[in-house]
Amino acid sequence: MDSPASPDRLPRVELAAISKHFGQGDTRVDALVDVALTVRAGEVVGLRGPSGCGKSTLLNVIGCVTEPSSGWMRLDGEPVYDGRFLRRDLRRLRLTRIGFIFQTHNLLPFLNATENIAAAMELAGMGHAEARERARALLAYFDMRQMRAYPSELSGGMAQRVAIARAIANEPHIILADEPTAPLDSAHAQGVMNLLERIAREQEAAVLVVTHDESIFHRFDRLISMHDGRIEAEEVPTHPVPAA
């Protein structure tokens, strides 16, 4: 079987010379400078760097929430940006092709676990009953029994599992995660990484994870370092970093 980074695998995320700046003249800030990145199906890629280096901007650009200033981008094989966004229904693209996992789970506080997941599917057009059934199945898949619990009643680890279930509910080919293990202890952080790896392999999804958490660096197929809006280095981690 070929490795996740094998060129034979489908590229899900392709970025070339992507730049993004905010402001003009003296107030201009270059958040991304000539970023080139490819993440393939089944690959779990880590993205690290100091605060303000452009990691979240890069996630926003790939998530079509922020429009780049220049460059070229293709998502799931479809050209999306070439000096301008090429399609108008970016919302639909986000809903069906991209799954998001946030640092603080960002579950809707007024929906219970099942409803949080079902809502994403209903927004994509699935019927109410079918969405609820699939949401329950996903929770069972993640060993979650508290199907009717509200986010405030869930531990950090459980809430993050619900958030991951929501992210993959519409079977997206691209999963973007913004520091998904930040609020979790080491054991739960490894649990989240297990889930992301499983999803990447089983759903042929490209997973891009922004993280500062060194304890999970060894879990990535590739680890990309950013600095001042540029991709500075890329490595294939092999061993766990010893705990400090």
Binding site: R94, L95, T96
Partner: peptide, 16 residues
């Protein structure tokens, strides 16, 4: 507002 931002991020249309 944060829930609304999340809804928008995951793709909810404005009409929702």
């Amino acid at each position: 507002l944060r829930s609304i931002a999340t809804l928008k991020f995951i793709g909810a249309p404005d009409r929702v």
